[in-house]
């Protein structure tokens, strides 16, 4: 999974049916110290994350399909699977 910081919601009314009723958030990958690394991307939120939260993002479709239990016709690849409380980098 990737450590990311939630930036904020992305609203889209016209969308593929698998995204209906699902919250979409833009997330910024961060390193182990919280510094931004790489470009932001989008992830479906399943854990009620909000702006500023540090989250765990899974970026693999098979895992997403198993978690969302919506069958195989699910074009979703990034899913927020946890809100991080603490990251400790051992020296």
């Amino acid at each position: 999974m990737k450590l990311c910081r939630v930036i904020g919601p992305v609203v889209a009314t016209a969308k593929h049916k698998a995204y209906a009723g699902r919250k979409l958030l833009s997330v910024q990958p961060v390193d182990e110290h919280g510094a931004a690394t790489g470009s932001s991307f989008l992830a479906v939120d399943d854990v009620q994350a909000g702006p500023g939260d540090v989250v765990l993002v899974m970026q693999e479709g098979n895992g997403v399909r198993q978690l969302l239990k919506m069958g195989s016709q699910v074009p979703i690849r990034s899913l927020i699977v946890g809100i991080v409380d603490r990251v400790t980098v051992s020296a």
Binding site: P9, V11, S26, D53, P75
Partner: peptide
């Protein structure tokens, strides 16, 4: 898979 109506801007968040 979607046409975007709005993208929330980055807000200065205190470093959690």
């Amino acid at each position: 898979v979607g046409i975007v109506d709005d993208v929330a801007p980055e807000t200065a968040q205190p470093l959690a």
